[in-house]
Design a protein around this nucleic acid. Structure first.
Length: 534
RNA sequence: GGUCCGUUCGUCUAGGGGUUAGGACGCAUCCCUUUCACGGAUGAAACACGGGUUCGAUUCCCGUACGGACUACCA
């Protein structure tokens, strides 16, 4: 991290150890726009902000950036709230837990912004513009036709447009008084080198002649992102702005705004995060890629209220929140050692902006699955059993907690998602009605028929406690009495009982199924399967 | 096109002027085992290219290529 400028703290050297004491509380914000479901990239931005804040014992705020009323999507705000809740990060200040700097919804802060825009106009750093959309289009077309490389409203073109810089003062007043629509634009200086020290990228320099006169106040009286975010960050005491790389090109505008508003001394430090890229090929990760490759891109299910488009979320696909967070944290960051599994608490402890990478990160769903498996295996049988029982309930099946735990204990090694517990362990509770033909063709033979026949008899006579050990010894006995090696028929036995050729330890399976049911299944298999193999 | 950002195994990445370039996912093989899985072991697999600087560059500098972001009265 580069602490040039306004490092909000003091560095102490005690007993050879460097300790940093923050004299100014670290305050960061996540500022999504409620225009739809929260994209996974946005969730990661929120996570990194949170981790940074908590690591510094600072505050994490959530601010809703809803200055574009045309893009408002009902439900999006609740979605953001619930998504953050799901991954376990709670904002210290938000529209729902107001702090000292509210409101936390920009639409509710509307009356605040105009005075700052006016301040800029008065100081000569901004101006009124009356150009219509058509006039702007015409200007761009004219410039394109004249082979101007990048047509923009800037220090040159503004002299030919309708604004308070070109119009007589009286006319400007008149237009304003008559209620004619207008915007307020930033007057970007013609020749100036704008420098900014990004915590991730170091010094970034941009010449002002490549910047255009950004609209600050829209004709509907709402501020644009550029103005609102600076005003709010300043008013809310934000010390660090951690956001996506897509903001880097407009960061110089923001520096200019801090300067013109007279807030440069308390300007936050910027950190622009690398983008999340498509898994295949190139470009920013989008919902299209997710649909195409069959993986989620949103934290939770989302149905677009305008199109009715449904997207499955990570939560609903069976991802555990801890696993999801762990996976997300490693998309662009690493702790610098070889550890991989981190709880949220551990992530806070290990997190630092210095260890965030610079380059874009391709999205690999396999890694997410691997993390999920790790977390699933680490879960207690007790918790997983509750999950399993809920799944079973949907099919009208009720079992005891103890039995559910037993099932979970042998199934969780091979599950990626909690739902796999039941999906792949179905045969433990429901007898097969058909058999895997491939396995039957290869393994089902006369020997298997003989052994199973004997085994059935032994089971019927058996009185003691049915355990994996007794189940095994009887099966061995059944094989021996037919002078058949048990190993030769094991697969066939498994097939007869479970219907498939693979699964957990068979004796454990037998005990869960139970002696009586076992006998029924042997009968069914013996009556159904035809011997094709030898 | 312009501006800005980036480039280490297929992917996520560690590292950093002298290393057998390390780990993880995935893949392959083997071991464990009644099967599958788990676990363990092993293996294939990378410093974009060209110039400098240097005794030495993957590491520093400059170009080139490639990729990306931005280029709205959207955020």
């Amino acid at each position: 991290m580069n602490f040039e400028g306004n490092f909000p703290g003091v560095i102490y050297l005690t007993k050879g150890k460097i300790s940093i004491k923050m004299t100014k509380e670290v305050r960061v914000r996540f500022a999504p726009s409620p225009t739809g479901a929260l994209h996974i990239g946005g969730v990661r931005t929120a996570l990194y902000n949170y981790l940074f804040a908590k690591k510094q014992q600072g505050k994490f705020l959530l601010r809703i950036e809803d200055t574009d009323q045309t893009r408002f999507v009902p439900g999006a705000e609740d979605y953001i709230k619930e998504a953050l809740e799901w991954i376990g990060i709670t904002p210290d200040e938000s529209p729902w837990t107001e702090g000292p700097h509210g409101p936390y919804r920009q639409s509710e802060r509307k009356p605040l912004y105009m005075q700052y825009a006016m301040d800029l106009v008065e100081k000569g750093f901004a101006y009124y513009a009356f150009d219509t959309a058509e006039e702007l289009d015409a200007m761009r077309e004219r410039l394109t036709a004249a082979r101007v490389v990048s047509p923009q409203y800037n220090s040159i073109t503004r002299t030919q447009m309708k604004n308070s810089l070109t119009l007589p003062e009286d006319e400007v007043k008149e237009r304003l008084a008559s209620g004619e629509p207008y915007v307020i634009r930033l007057k970007v200086p013609r020749k100036e080198e704008i420098r900014l020290n990004d915590m991730i990228r170091g010094w970034v320099m941009v010449h002002s002649n490549t910047l255009d006169d950004k609209v600050l106040m829209k004709s509907d009286g709402m501020p644009t992102y550029h103005l609102a975010n600076i005003v709010d960050d300043h008013l809310m005491g934000i010390t660090h702005v951690i956001r996506g790389e897509e903001w880097l090109p407009s960061a110089p505008i923001h520096v200019l705004l801090y300067r013109y508003l007279g807030w440069e001394d308390s300007m936050p430090q910027f950190a622009h995060l690398p983008l999340l890229l498509k898994p295949d090929g190139n470009g920013k990760l989008s919902k299209r890629d997710a649909d195409k490759n069959g993986f989620p891109i949103f934290p939770m299910n989302w149905t677009d209220p305008r199109t009715g488009d449904f997207s499955q979320g990570f939560k609903d696909a069976g991802y555990l929140p801890d696993a999801f967070v762990n996976f997300l944290a490693f998309l662009g960051w690493n702790p610098g050692d070889h550890r991989e599994i981190f709880s949220l608490e551990e992530l806070i402890e290990a997190f630092s902006v210095e260890r965030i990478g610079k380059s874009g990160t391709k999205f690999d769903i396999n890694k997410a699955k691997w993390f999920n498996e790790q977390y699933l295996k680490a879960k207690s049988n007790h918790d997983l059993a509750i999950y399993l029982m809920e799944d079973l309930e949907k099919e009208g099946i009720e079992i005891l907690q103890a039995k559910a735990e037993k099932i979970v204990s042998i199934m969780k090694e091979r599950a990626t998602f909690p739902a796999d517990l039941w999906k792949e362990g179905r045969f433990l509770l429901i007898a097969p009605t058909e058999f895997d033909e491939k396995v039957a063709g290869k393994k089902w033979n006369d020997d298997a028929v003989k052994v199973l026949g004997s085994y059935k008899e032994l089971l019927e006579k058996f009185q003691g406690e049915f355990t994996p050990e007794t189940a095994k010894s009887m099966l061995e006995q059944a094989a021996e009495s037919n002078e058949i090696k048990l190993g030769k028929v094991m697969q066939a036995v498994r097939l007869a009982i479970t219907g498939v050729g693979a699964g957990p330890d068979l004796m454990e399976v037998f005990v869960i199924i139970g002696k009586d049911e076992l006998i029924k299944r042997i009968d069914f298999a013996l009556n159904t399967l035809e011997v094709k193999a030898n």
